[in-house]
Amino acid sequence: MTIDSRSAALTNTSLAMRAWNIRRKALMMGEVQGQGYIGQALGVADVLATAYFHALDYRSDDPEWEGRDRFLLSIGHYAIALYSVLMEAGILPDEELETYGMDDSRMPMSGMASYTPGMEITGGSLGHGLGIAVGMALGLKRKNNPAFVYNLMSDGELGEGSTWEAAMSGAHHKLDNLICLVDFNDQQADGKSTEMLCSEPLTEKWEAFGWFAQRVDGNDLAAVVDAFDRARSCSDARPRVIIFDTTMCKGVPFLERREITHFVRVEADEWAKALAVLDEGKPA
């Protein structure tokens, strides 16, 4: 599948602008609820922009189109980030942004498949996504469907044994249609993931498990694009993983400098300030 064959309705909007829009929408949702996993959303925005506006094949008006590349959000609490990109991609309407986390919303705080168009699985119980992705990749091969399965997971999920069961299985079954994306922001609920259950050396670990592994700066769009291209075009009969080192709260310097925690505390009056700061950095 080439980029040219993608059916997604693309415009000339640059990836930088897409990422900026994703960050902006995430901040607006955070403002609606007065809370949210905004640190993760700002950090992973460049990866999501590249996924949805460079790599994935999908149809905005038909999120269940059989030919689509599957995008699994294993980290349910990153839903705020995925809703932002689903809106940016035209799969969710912008108008629903203000329902985020409210009763009867299609956008609950933790992502669930049965609530949201474009949400492939119910994540949140961590370490589930990659195993489901293995099953979907096997299923696609049975159907001779050339689509890719992407699984976005966090560094924290590297601590779950089920992740490594799935990693072994992906290589065992030579799943060259499986691409795992690891958002490595080195932050978990109780602190730094490398200080609690260290998964390093991570690239070598995935390689030892039989994967084509890359590690790049997840906030460098050119590097992210290049990594996606290499993962998709690799001709090896093995699954692919990209580890993205990302910065929590990227794009809003006063939040980046804050003592970062898993759940970034943002005061009521800071949402507008964060949006204003983001606006100052709007791409040309």
Binding site: E120, I121, G127, H128, L130, G131, I132, A133, V134, G135, M136, A137, L138, G139, L140, R142, K143, N145, G161, S162, E165, A166, M168, S169, H172
Partner: peptide
């Protein structure tokens, strides 16, 4: 027939994934 190895968490997750793709595992 899919031999998933001695990995029950994977067994159930992968079965779920195959069901998502239209199979009856």
């Amino acid at each position: 027939y899919y031999q998933m190895g001695m990995a029950e968490q994977l067994l159930m997750s992968a079965a779920a994934g195959m069901a998502r793709e239209g199979f009856i595992p």
